[in-house]
Write a protein that binds this DNA or RNA. Structure first.
Lengths: 209, 209
DNA sequence: TGTTGTGAAGGCGTTCACAGCC
DNA sequence: GGCTGTGAACGCCTTCACAACA
């Protein structure tokens, strides 16, 4: 019974699932075979009821009196999150953040492969980045199509972000992860996630004041 | 009239304020003197009612029929967010992400100064990073106290994050921005913000599936 | 007239509490 | 006895709608 296609799942739920998924990987590596909603809750920062409700939206994965089978639940969530396929990713902006993303082990492990890097600085174009040649922004639209890139990550500065997003969308990417501050307008068939480091630090500042 | 000390302000509200603040800076640079809740809403992705409600939690900043005075509102929000003071920041984990943070112009402009970098890799300790000497993790507690560091940023790998957080807390930081996956347990006098890149990409993956 | 400030209504996610099942 | 699955209650944030006012 999979209700995913019918039911609307909230963003917080999806983000928690991602958390459960990581924990399940650790539990499996540690030899655990079952886990209760209480344990998952404690490790993830959620509540037991929350864990059960989140999982029940997608099926009946648990056994009363026992809990959830670690390996099976991990497989279920992998499928729910769409991690049992390969995602081809392009990064725009060949700076330090791009370097950090390319080096990030977690990504490759979950099926996100960075297959292209772009920059508008002629001095950077042509450089070798972990085996990838940095390409010009002018090649972006064609390259995204050729490389069949699904997801674009914008690490370019704010001034360039709008233009970069338009190119990515024109080239047909369906998802964008944006690190530049400022609002991007995207058509509704494109999914957008924003990570704004200034907001994180400023909300900390507010809490500390 | 400042209700900040009495009223409980929600996290979403604070994050939106941070967005308004950035936009106000742009408007001022563009020579705008007033702005309406409609305009701020459109530029930030909120709704006009939301903008007015957020601002009304802290005072009566607007003029009916006219809108908000850009420069004045910017000053108000700066004070609300605690950005009219200097925050001393330490980064733990001298990798690519740390490089990106140190190079990030936005931070310095808003009063966040990175004054120390730490790593546990002997090969990195002693290296020069934009004028900062990379210090050993073993120096962390003493250095945080000496340098009067308020905020710690954890860019270390997941395995090290718990230990790093404990050291930061023992040394007396009041805020932590954590980039490592996994839950950190902090006492309630310490504020914690998490940025988890895997969750961002996986929630995109879910939306695209 | 144009726009703010705000009580009231609405919507949505979380928590409760317990029936159901192993 | 232990733990899941879930309808109902709750609480919180958002949106509405309009009075107040420049």
């Amino acid at each position: 019974v999979n209700a995913a296609e019918e039911l609307r799942i909230s963003d917080p739920t999806v983000r928690r699932l991602s958390g459960y998924y990581r924990i399940l990987g650790e539990l499996r590596a540690g030899g655990e075979e079952t886990v209760s909603s209480y344990d998952l809750a404690h490790r993830s920062g959620a509540t037991p009821a929350q864990v059960r409700k989140d999982l029940s939206l997608f099926g009946h994965f648990g056994k009363r009196g026992t809990g959830y089978a670690v390996a099976q639940l991990e497989t279920e969530i992998r499928a729910i999150l769409g991690l049992n396929r390969h995602w081809r990713v392009g990064v725009v902006g060949a700076g330090n953040l791009a370097h950090a993303l390319i080096a990030y082990r977690e990504f490759a492990r979950e099926g996100f492969e960075i297959v292209a890097v772009f920059d508008n600085d002629p001095a950077k174009v042509g450089q070798d980045w972990n085996g990838l040649r940095v390409r010009s922004i002018d090649e972006l639209v064609d390259a995204v199509r050729e490389e069949r890139i699904d997801i674009g990550i914008i690490t370019a500065p704010a001034e360039a972000a709008t233009d970069v997003a338009q190119r990515l969308i024109r080239a047909g990417v369906r998802g964008i992860l944006n690190f530049a501050p400022g609002k991007l307008f995207v058509p509704k068939h494109v999914s957008l996630r924003n990570v704004n480091l200034a907001i994180e630090l400023e909300s900390l500042s507010y809490a500390l004041k």
